[in-house]
Amino acid sequence: QIFVKTLTGKTITLEVEPSDTIENVKAKIQDKEGIPPDQQRLIFAGKQLEDGRTLSDYNIQKESTLHLVL
């Protein structure tokens, strides 16, 4: 699982696999929060994550925290 922290300070927990794409993660966030993926920007280690890449591409491991910017 990974954590996604929103600007409001809320933390969302997501069940993911390293092979999941960023697009996939955004879809999971939409399921939980109702935020359309095209409004979501995910930041990890100061980098904006691209939809077509996977979590493992960015070396995002379990218990990692991503930041969600709208």
Rank of each mutant, 00 (worst) to 15 (best):
K47V: 15
Q30R: 14
V16Q: 02
N24R: 13
L55Y: 01
L49I: 04
L14A: 02
K10W: 09
F44H: 08
L49Q: 00
T8H: 14
P37T: 14
A27I: 14
D57W: 09
K26Y: 03
T21P: 05
H67T: 14
K10D: 08
Q40E: 02
D31M: 12
I43N: 06
I2F: 04
T6E: 04
Q61I: 13
K5P: 01
L66G: 02
I43C: 15
L68M: 08
A27M: 15
G46E: 06
E15C: 15
E50W: 05
L66Y: 02
K10S: 08
Q48E: 15
P37H: 10
Q40W: 06
D20V: 04
L42P: 01
R53N: 10
S64H: 07
T8Q: 11
Q30D: 05
I2A: 02
D20S: 07
T54N: 05
I29K: 00
L49Y: 00
L68E: 01
I35Q: 03
Q48Y: 13
I29A: 01
L7G: 15
E17M: 10
K5V: 15
I60H: 01
K26P: 00
T65K: 05
T21H: 04
S64E: 08
E33K: 04
D51T: 06
N59W: 05
Q39S: 10
Q1A: 09
L68F: 03
L66M: 05
E50L: 09
K26A: 02
E15G: 07
N59L: 07
L68N: 01
P36K: 07
I29V: 06
K62H: 15
L70E: 09
S64N: 09
E33P: 01
I12K: 01
D57L: 02
V4W: 01
G52V: 07
E33Y: 08
K5F: 06
K47I: 15
G34N: 08
E63I: 03
K28C: 05
Q39M: 11
T11L: 14
D20M: 10
K28T: 03
Q48D: 14
I35N: 03
S19A: 08
E33W: 13
Q1V: 15
S19P: 03
N59M: 07
R41L: 12
T54A: 06
Q30K: 12
D31V: 14
A27W: 12
K26Q: 02
D51W: 03
K32M: 11
R41Y: 12
L70F: 08
R53K: 14
N59H: 09
A27K: 15
V69A: 09
E17P: 03
K62N: 15
R41A: 08
E33R: 05
L42V: 03
Q39I: 10
P18F: 15
L55I: 09
I2H: 01
L49T: 03
I29E: 00
K32S: 11
H67W: 11
Q48L: 15
K28I: 06
G34H: 07
I60V: 09
I60S: 01
I22F: 02
V69Y: 14
P18V: 11
T54C: 08
D57P: 00
I12L: 11
S56I: 10
I35Y: 13
K47N: 12
L7C: 15
T21W: 05
L42N: 00
P37V: 14
L49V: 04
S64V: 07
E15H: 12
K28L: 10
K32G: 04
Q61D: 09
P37N: 07
G46V: 02
R41I: 15
L42D: 00
L66Q: 01
L14E: 00
T21Q: 04
T65V: 13
Q40L: 06
D20C: 08
E63H: 13
T8C: 15
V4C: 04
T13N: 06
I35F: 11
L66F: 04
D57A: 05
P36V: 05
I22M: 04
N59G: 14
F3R: 07
Q40K: 02
I29P: 00
Q1H: 15
S56T: 09
R41H: 13
S56G: 11
L42M: 03
K62C: 15
L66H: 01
L55D: 00
Q39E: 09
G9Q: 04
H67C: 15
I22D: 00
L70H: 12
R41C: 15
A45I: 06
P36T: 06
G34Y: 04
